[in-house]
Design a protein around this nucleic acid. Structure first.
Lengths: 340, 340
DNA sequence: TATGTTGATGCATACGCTTGCACGGAGAAT
DNA sequence: ATTCTCCGTGCAAGCGTATGCATCAACATA
């Protein structure tokens, strides 16, 4: 049999030889919309099947200057919101013929050097869903001509496109809801101090409460993890003036908060304490927790991200856009409701 | 200033010109262990920094025949076990200088054609952590000379390397534990019928019970989702001879099972019903559920996977290995304990 | 019949990099 | 001083594909 020179994979040239036509024809047969006769295309495809030929996407990228690879940077995979997002992104991108090169930033360490190696793959676009990467890096990517979309993370840096939930409106809606429910002593549990999501949610919450006449709010930091959130809850509930409503910057923490309140302090939710989360992801809707929350529609957000990135890839010099995907207050039973 | 011919990125040739040396030298400067003088390496790196040059990994792969990309196929990202695994895999591979090309199979649809496009990226190896892809495809990959490791999924097909938890031993350990706890009527909640993990766990469970004199086991299918697991629980608990112990094929389902038992049937866990899971992932350890379970040490499993894949990439014609990573029974409070 | 149009094909080059080979020079060994 | 190493460097040939250009056949038009 016709053994290839090495053990390496068959190339377009091999297929061409087999089918008795030129290598160009093989290339065209695999390019949708190229100028090839149906008959030769069939011949090519058959020869390809026979030789188990698969076009080399890397070589293709070298000439076309487009890799059809999108880098996705993500941390916090333990917060169920992000796996959901990742899944949506993956589906949408795959449907458009793109592949995801996944980058997970190591906790706490410097992620930039590692990300550097991702950049070498000539990715066509970048989705940054991680707080761990410096904004400087994001800027540099954009400087290198690679479209970047920040997911769930905004920056005051101009020139960056981003997609996020309506954090301020959400915080405000929660404030209004809790206030209408007749709560007196409010607390806010922050996620990561340097994350824009946490900051924006807090701002919306505080501003709305202030307008309602509430200026004093106790505060703790849960760093978006269950452990820290549990600890933060203990701190909040050990105050002599215990809050009667806690707004946690996400559901993940709200659940931890509820567990501590129930199991360690013996509180009845929502009679003794109202707890509100943010995201409407993961176990928030599970009957055990039934968290009142403000939704971040991850599918819609992913869709907006992909479509925005797609536009940027078509026209890189476009002005940056900020897209805010609205959510809604999901009223469940973890917080006392307003009368009537 | 020296504008490049197009707007495209700078190449090694540009750097060479800037540094006044040959393009080969530039290449070598970026290749660890290559034969370059320290002085020229410095010159190159400086010129590279100045031009914002980044080696093109795709072009490199074309000549080296290695992409340093690993394909990871995963579904079930809503089961928290898998995000944990993904994170571990990502860290380990990144540390070895590999990138992950993520593939998520669409639910129910034919995934093979989509996976085909992943294969075109000349991946150096494949980790299959999804039941959605046909074994035929896995075999074909291996036939194409690409090392494949099945994660948490075995096949009777010879010639496939795999890593899995100790499903049979886990099932058996759970059987022994429940039996010692004095349970009488056992139930098993399967995951996906065609998944080897579910089958193996069931086999271990049944075999051990049979040896203990228990032959009758009721059974339901939860398809590894919360909704189906809830429905399956209802079916099990509506039987006139209600089980007093349910072994769910994973924690994800065990939690759903516990919620239905508590909220809809008003059962006290574990007084009225013992529930055991598998994985020790996600919320299993949360005090609200506190699931007795058999652990799948995801970090160790990921490490084994990466190391096995690494070996296969060094020597592709190696005989296949099956690696079983042992877990342990994690006794919590969701199942009645044996006396003493 | 002569001319223009269209679609299919092949040739040759470019994409950005690695690497075998040859070569030169600096130092070590004789 | 001569030979032998060995390291650092440049040259040039690929790696597998896409694509502009030229060519050519087939057919429609005048």
């Amino acid at each position: 049999m016709s053994r290839r020179k090495k053990t390496s994979r068959p190339t377009a040239a091999d297929v061409a030889r087999e089918a008795g036509i030129s290598q160009s024809a093989v290339s065209r047969a695999f390019t949708p919309g190229a100028s090839v006769a149906q008959s030769t295309r069939h011949r090519v495809l058959e020869a390809a099947r026979k030789l188990k030929y698969r076009p080399n996407a890397l070589a293709r990228s070298l000439t076309t200057q487009r890799s059809r690879i999108i880098a996705v940077a993500m941390t916090q995979l333990d917060n169920p919101f992000y796996p959901s997002v990742l899944q949506s992104l993956s589906r949408l991108l795959q449907a458009r013929g793109y592949q995801i090169l996944l980058f997970t930033a190591p906790q706490g360490e410097a992620a930039d050097p590692l990300f550097e190696s991702v950049m070498r793959y000539q990715v066509d676009g970048i989705i940054l869903a991680s707080t761990m990467l410096s904004s400087a890096l994001a800027r540099e990517c954009r400087g290198a001509g690679v479209p970047v979309v920040l997911f769930n993370r905004t920056t005051n840096d101009t020139g960056m496109s981003s997609v996020a939930g309506d954090n301020e409106a959400g915080g405000a809606a929660i404030a209004a809801f809790l206030h209408a429910g007749g709560h007196r002593r409010y607390a806010f549990m922050a996620g990561l101090e340097d994350s824009s999501t946490s900051r924006d949610r807090e701002r919306g919450f505080r501003t709305a409460l202030k307008e309602l006449g509430v200026a004093e709010i106790s505060r703790a930091v849960g760093r978006y993890t269950r452990e820290d959130a549990a600890e933060a809850t203990r701190a909040l509930l050990h105050q002599e003036q215990r809050p009667d409503a806690i707004f946690c910057a996400n559901d993940h923490m709200a659940i931890a908060c509820m567990e501590v309140a129930r199991m360690e302090f013996g509180l009845n939710i929502p009679r003794d304490l109202s707890i509100v989360g943010f995201d409407d992801a993961g176990m928030a809707s599970a009957p055990t927790f039934d968290i009142t929350t403000y939704s971040q529609p991850f599918a819609a957000m992913a869709a907006a991200t992909v479509s925005m990135l797609s536009d940027l890839m078509d026209a890189p010099d476009q002005p940056p856009r900020r897209c805010i995907v609205g959510g809604e207050l999901i009223v469940r039973s973890s917080a006392r409701r307003p009368p009537q």
